[in-house]
Design a protein around this nucleic acid. Structure first.
Lengths: 151, 151
DNA sequence: CTAACTGCAAAGTGTTTGCACTCTT
DNA sequence: AAGAGTGCAAACACTTTGCAGTTAG
């Protein structure tokens, strides 16, 4: 919704370079262009749409490279995916209202009883025209087995 | 996490039958077996895993039928999908902490500034061994354009 | 120089579709 | 009957993989 200023982009790209060095990642031309495209875009772009932007600057780039790099970025916390459970349809079997705990490592989903939470409260109303139907909270972290020091 | 009692299953299947009648959906054998399998399973099953269960009772059933019916169930509110944005990878461009509003109709995702919300509070701690890293709220409803009476 | 990265094409997933046949109503 | 639903196979979209060649450190 907000414009992104050039200074933000530059700052984020600069931090990106540092993060790559810190993580031992090569700073390739492709890598940087992809990251820059990402931070210059707004909303929640798909790999394809990022590819479309990047291709204007590196016509020979392949979609696979975009995918590989986005995955690398995610793995190193350089960007984030909108949802931990994209990829495949999953159905609810629990018909009672509840929230979810998603393990960032094994991706397993655990139900969290609704009454474990204080009701979520808005400080102000949603932007005009938006009609709220329901709201659910997603907790992210490590589940019991993934959090064990051994594993 | 909890066992599902037979009485719950029967009650839900009975309601299902009624819902189908109300919605003008044919009550086929396959349909009912699929629904029953779903409510008898626990957690967040995939279409494949439901297919596996159903196949034991109707060996000739096809995976496509399972998919078609699950979609029908979702469309009629007879069950719910775990995440509205499974399907394809989407990246965040907004690096500030924020929540999401997802339009149930057009599936568009809108960022909701973190400070619009009272912080989410737990009444008790999470089950032992779970390590919380972050938490984000997903609002669902109709967005501005989908909520217009015209559309 | 070496390990990491890229581009390509091919292979994988998970999911949908078209169509002839079969059931529910 | 008529329309809705089913099974099959083929088509799809999205993503990953293997590998030979290239580049960063």
């Amino acid at each position: 919704m907000n414009q992104i200023s050039h200074i933000d982009v530059e700052a984020r790209v600069e931090r990106f370079r540092q993060d790559c060095r810190d993580a031992g990642l090569s700073l390739t031309h492709q890598r940087e262009i992809i990251f820059r495209a990402l931070v210059e875009m707004h909303g929640h772009p798909s790999p394809e749409s990022i590819y479309g932007v990047v291709k204007r600057q590196i016509p020979a780039i392949s979609l696979a490279t975009v995918y590989k790099n986005l995955k690398t970025f995610i793995d190193h916390g350089l960007t984030r995916e909108v949802s931990l459970h994209h990829g495949a349809l999953r159905l609810e079997t629990n018909s009672a209202p509840h929230h979810h705990f998603v393990c960032v490592r094994c991706k397993e989903i655990f139900d969290i009883d609704e009454e474990l939470l204080q009701p979520v409260e808005l400080r102000r109303t949603l932007p005009d025209g938006f009609r709220l139907q329901r709201c659910s909270v997603e907790f992210q972290g490590l589940c019991r087995s993934c959090g064990k020091p051994s594993s």
